[in-house]
C-alpha cells in the first residue's frame, strides 16, 4: 500500500477559510443577467472547487434569492459539490461493459488503497473518488479517469501505478 495515502473518511473535513473576494467577483460578473443563479453557482464552484456554505449566504444576499432555494438547486444537480474536493478526481466506470470486465475489483482496490468510497475525499484533499454509470468508452473497459486523463484496460496493478503517480505530484 502506498505510504502517501491518508486513510480517514470518518471525521468531518474542515473547510478551508472562505475568501469572499472570489465569489464577489463571480457575482459581479453575472449580477444583472436574468437567470443568473446557475452561472453564478458554477462560477463559484470553478473558483473554490466546490460551493462553500458561506458562499450560499453571500449569493442569497447579493442576488436576493432565498438560501433554501439555492440549496435546492445545489442538491438537484449532480454537478454541484458542497464539500471540498480533491485535487485529483478519480472516476471509475461501473457501466455494463466495465462491470463484466471486473470494475468491481477496480473499485475495491481503490477503496483498499485510498480508504475512501464513492463521493468521498481524502483528508489531505489530494483525491476524490467517484463511481459513475458510464464514461462512454466501453471499448477500453474496465475504465478509470483521473481528472481529464483516461486509463483503459484497468488492472489492480494499474490502480497502484495511478495512485503512486498522482501521490508524487505536488498538492
Amino acid at each position: 500500500m502506498s505510504e502517501a495515502v491518508a486513510v480517514n473518511q470518518e471525521t468531518e473535513m474542515e473547510e478551508p477559510v472562505f475568501d469572499p473576494a472570489l465569489a464577489e467577483m463571480v457575482i459581479e460578473k453575472y449580477k444583472d443577467i436574468p437567470g443568473n443563479l446557475m452561472p453564478v453557482l458554477q462560477g463559484i464552484q470553478d473558483e473554490y472547487g466546490y460551493v462553500p456554505k458561506a458562499a450560499v449566504g453571500l449569493v442569497a444576499e447579493r442576488l436576493n434569492v432565498y438560501p433554501s432555494q439555492i440549496y435546492g438547486v445545489l442538491t438537484f444537480y449532480a454537478q454541484f459539490h458542497l464539500k471540498p474536493r480533491g485535487k485529483y478526481i478519480i472516476r471509475v466506470c461501473m457501466g455494463t461493459a466495465c462491470h463484466v470486465l471486473g470494475a468491481e475489483r477496480i473499485r475495491e482496490t481503490f477503496f483498499e488503497r485510498l480508504g475512501i468510497g464513492h463521493a468521498e475525499t481524502s483528508q489531505d484533499r489530494r483525491f476524490t473518488f467517484e463511481l459513475v454509470a458510464c464514461l462512454g468508452a466501453c471499448g477500453m473497459a474496465p475504465l478509470a479517469m483521473v481528472n481529464d486523463e483516461t486509463y483503459g484496460k484497468m488492472t489492480v496493478q494499474k490502480v497502484d501505478e495511478i495512485i503512486k503517480e498522482y501521490s508524487s505530484l505536488p498538492l
Binding site: K53, Y66, P67, S68, Y71, T75, F76, L82
Partner: peptide, 26 residues
C-alpha cells in the same frame, strides 16, 4: 412560504426518490 409569506424557508431538496422538503443545508 415563497408566494405569500416571502420568507422562502422551505425548498425541495435533492431529486428523484430522494426528494424531500427542507431548509438550506437541511
Amino acid at each position: 412560504c415563497d408566494e405569500i409569506v416571502s420568507r422562502g424557508a422551505l425548498t425541495f431538496i435533492s431529486r428523484g426518490i430522494e426528494t424531500k422538503i427542507g431548509t438550506e443545508f437541511d
